[in-house]
Simulated assay, not measured.
Amino acid sequence: MTATTIRPVAIKIDEDTKLRVKRLADARQRTSHWLMREAITQYVDREEKREAFRQDALKAWEDFRSNGLHVTADEADAWMAQLEQGNDIEPPECHV
């Protein structure tokens, strides 16, 4: 395992936001620094997942455009209704 190098980074925020962060950090019994690091980490994690989802959707669209395979909305709805009822069934077959 390699050690992660942590380097300071300066950010500029307005005074109101700075006070809000300070109040929230105090209420959580944390430092403002900890709160900002946590907020940035959560934001980056969320946005990476959002970007991965977007890339998956673009790939699915390109796959559909190249091969035409799909399921209808009715087929997908029927499958999901079975899953909601606790029936672990296979997804419907794709077709052209």
Rank of each mutant, 00 (worst) to 15 (best):
F64Q: 00
C94H: 11
E93Q: 13
T31I: 03
A10P: 00
I13W: 02
D74L: 12
R23A: 08
D16Q: 10
V21D: 01
Q42H: 12
H95D: 03
Q29S: 10
L69K: 09
E47I: 12
E84V: 03
A27V: 03
P8T: 04
E75A: 15
I6H: 07
I6A: 07
G86H: 01
R54G: 02
D14T: 04
G68Q: 15
W34G: 00
A78Q: 11
W34M: 04
K12A: 01
A57N: 14
R30C: 13
Q29P: 01
K22T: 05
E38S: 14
N67S: 11
K18F: 13
T2Q: 07
P92C: 10
T31N: 02
F64Y: 12
K49A: 14
A76Q: 13
V96A: 15
N87K: 15
A3L: 08
D45C: 08
C94S: 12
E51F: 06
W34P: 00
D16C: 07
V9W: 05
E62Y: 09
Q42E: 15
T4A: 11
R50V: 09
L24F: 09
T2V: 10
S32N: 02
Q42I: 09
Q82W: 03
Q85I: 00
K49F: 10
P92L: 06
V21L: 10
Y43S: 09
I13A: 09
Q29G: 03
E84C: 04
A39G: 14
K22R: 07
A57T: 14
E90Q: 13
N87F: 10
F53T: 13
T31D: 04
M80K: 11
F64D: 01
A81C: 09
R46T: 10
K22A: 05
E90S: 12
E93I: 06
A73M: 07
L35M: 04
R30M: 14
W61Q: 12
P92N: 04
W79T: 01
E48K: 04
D56Y: 00
F53I: 11
D16M: 13
E62A: 10
Y43E: 13
Q82M: 12
V71D: 00
L69A: 12
N87S: 10
T4P: 02
Y43Q: 14
D16V: 13
K18Y: 14
W61H: 11
T4H: 02
A81K: 14
E15R: 09
R7V: 09
E51C: 03
A39L: 12
E75S: 07
A10R: 11
L35K: 07
V71F: 00
I89P: 00
V71K: 12
D14C: 11
H33Q: 15
E84N: 07
Y43D: 07
A73T: 15
R30K: 10
A57F: 12
D26R: 06
E51H: 10
R50F: 02
N67P: 06
E38Q: 12
F53M: 07
D45W: 14
H95N: 02
M80Q: 08
L58W: 13
I6R: 08
Q42M: 14
V9F: 06
R30H: 01
D77E: 15
M1R: 10
F53K: 06
V21C: 03
R20K: 14
A76E: 11
Q55M: 04
M1H: 14
P92Y: 02
A25H: 02
E15A: 15
A39F: 06
R20Y: 02
T4Y: 04
D26W: 05
L24W: 09
K12I: 11
P92A: 07
I89L: 01
S66M: 08
R46S: 08
